[in-house]
Amino acid sequence: MPPPMPMHLFNPLRFSVELFYTLLIMFLCFFIYYKTKELYSLTDHKGIYYFRIAFLLLGLTHLPRFIFFLLKVSTFTQGFMIPFRSFGHIFLVATFYLSTLALLYLIYSSYWKKLNPKYFIIFSNLFALILAVSSFFYRSPLIIGFAQLILFVVAFFIFLFGFRKKKRFSKTTVLYLFVLIFWLLSLFILVPNWLIPWGFDFVLYIVSLIVFLIIYRKVSKWTK
C-alpha cells in the first residue's frame, strides 16, 4: 500500500491567493506599460522608456515566481515525479533575473540623466545575471533575496544622496521603496514559513496590491 500523500501541505486558500495576487499584479503592471505607450511615442522620453520597461519586467517576473510556487506545492503535495530541484529552479533564475532588472530600471528611470545608459544597461544586466546564476547554485530565495536587499539599499542610497539635488524622499521615491520592500518580502514567502508568520503573507499581498493600485491610479491620472 502506498504511503498516504501529505495533502495537508496543499492549502487551497493559499493557492487561490497566490493566483489572484499574481494575476492582479501582472494585470496592473501590463496596464501601466500599455497606458504609457502614447506618452512615450509622442516624446521618446528616456525616463518614460525606463519606467515602462520596469513595469513590463515587474509584470513578467511574477509569472516565473508563480510557476516556482506551483511546482513547489505540487512536488510536496501530490508526490508528482516533477524533478523540482533542477526544473523548478530554472523559474527561480528567471524570477531573479527579471526582478533585478525591473527594480534597477525603476530606480534608473529617475536618474537616467546622471548615468550613461550604455554603462547602466551593461551594469544592470551583469548584476541581474550574477544574482540569477547565484540563485541557481544556492537554490534558495532567502539568500538571494537578502543579497538583492543589501545591493538595492546601497544602490538606492548612492543614487539618492549622490545624484539628487533635493535630498529628501518624494512621494514617488517612497512608493518605489514600497515596491522594492514588498517584492523582497514576496520572495521570502517562497521559503519555509518560519520567516514570515502564518497569515502575514495575506496582509503583505493586500498592502502590496494597494501600492501597485496607487501607482496605477497615479499613472491613469496623467494618461487620460
Partner: peptide, 15 residues
C-alpha cells in the same frame, strides 16, 4: 494637447 499631462506625468514620477 497632451503636453501638460506629459509634464505632469514626468514630474509625478521624477522621470
Amino acid at each position: 494637447e497632451k503636453y501638460k499631462l506629459i509634464i505632469g506625468f514626468i514630474d509625478e514620477f521624477d522621470l
